[in-house]
């Protein structure tokens, strides 16, 4: 998977936390939509965890680009905003799930594993 959030301390922290999981490999981390997209093109990860609000368009822009380029990467949105407008925008842009930052890390891990399952399942089927 890859990860993108404009708050560097959070990227550092989540990268370490995710890297401790035996079934998760963090291939790279970015600070904005453009970096996130570059990482996805380069690694074509199963999952990209994207902060909804980042410079250069944030999660929605990166998610739309990932979809329009036909990458198999599934997007898990990470958000500090618990409102329907933000959630709907992110889901409409192609995210498969929307995880709030005020939830425990276990929810993020679960969302990543689910997304990875669907990503791999689909690529086998196609």
């Amino acid at each position: 998977m890859v990860l993108a959030d404009d708050q560097e301390a959070i990227v550092d922290a989540l990268t370490r936390l995710l890297a401790e999981q035996p079934d998760i490999e963090v291939l790279g981390a970015g600070r904005n939509a453009e970096e996130a997209l570059k990482l996805c093109i380069e690694h074509e990860p199963d999952v990209a965890v994207l902060d909804v609000r980042m410079p250069q368009g944030g999660g929605p822009v990166a998610a739309m680009e990932i979809r329009s380029r036909g990458l198999r990467t599934r997007v898990v949105a990470l958000s500090a905003f618990d409102d329907n407008a933000t959630r709907d925008h992110m889901m409409a842009s192609g995210a498969v799930s929307y995880v709030l930052k005020d939830r425990p890390v276990s929810e993020l891990l679960e969302a990543i594993r689910q997304a990875a399952g669907s990503s791999q399942g689909e690529s086998v089927a196609s």
Partner: peptide, 12 residues
């Protein structure tokens, strides 16, 4: 209040 951030900082 963002548990994910607090946990992450804790690990760090």
């Amino acid at each position: 209040d963002h548990a994910m951030v607090a946990e992450g900082l804790g690990v760090l």
